[in-house]
Design a protein around this nucleic acid. Structure first.
Lengths: 116, 116
DNA sequence: TTCTATCCATAGATTGGCTATGGGTGGAGG
DNA sequence: CCTCCACCCATAGCCAATCTATGGATAGAA
């Protein structure tokens, strides 16, 4: 396995982090820990979207409080303790709605931003 | 002319307002006042992007302070005093870069958000 | 044994949008 | 004539969410 590091300067559209997290959990289908989620987002986005740990963990807490994800301590593949998150039913519903709304806004933004 | 009102609930991706303003000024090519910019964004986006006046005017101030736009009092087509803004050279440069960066991030977001 | 990658977490500052509010003017319709 | 609405500007105070900075702990490679 290639070396994988987080760090670097953060790049992210504010207000989209929770959706990205939920969507990552949905797409992979299996529980993931925070660090893994950040790596996943980084890789899928080809190094463009970089999630700061100081943004990530508070976001995961918020999602747990809202009942959109469920956390559980477990052991990672590398043998360390890690907190694994999985989508709840509410979370699955939420992500569907959020993505739909997001795509609508995107489309609108492109109408403003892109040349006629 | 049809009646045009602002108000309604605001919808906007945080962190993108200044870019939207600059891009509006660039695309129309002519100086616009704040109210007109908000209407323009609303119309081009087909009622999806709604800019609150409490967000708009502070944003215009920030842009003026940064030297990206230049303000000038003048008279609107309806005969009222209005503050007209136009892009500066720096603003024109800025908007080009910001749009490029934004499109890159968008593309990345779609890779995460959209089904394989 | 030292260093790096893997993992979690929080405090504090900062950014920037929202709500609420205020004020002023031109013109249309009653 | 006068009232209302669309047109315009602006600010204070709040609040949500991200970033910076920091701290800590461990497995495994070099």
């Amino acid at each position: 396995m290639t070396k994988e590091v987080l760090s670097k300067k953060a790049v992210l559209l504010p207000g989209t982090l929770e959706m990205l997290i939920l969507r990552s959990l949905e797409r992979t289908g299996e529980p993931m820990h925070g660090y893994g989620i950040a790596l996943y987002i980084k890789q899928i986005s080809k190094e463009v979207l970089l999630v700061e740990e100081g943004s990530l963990y508070p976001a995961l807490q918020r999602l747990a409080i809202k009942g959109l994800v469920k956390a559980e301590w477990s052991e990672s593949e590398t043998g360390r303790k890690a907190r694994y998150y999985k989508l709840t039913a509410a979370g699955r519903k939420q992500v569907t709605e959020e993505v739909a709304g997001f795509e609508k806004i995107l489309e609108a933004m492109l109408r403003v931003v892109q040349p006629a």
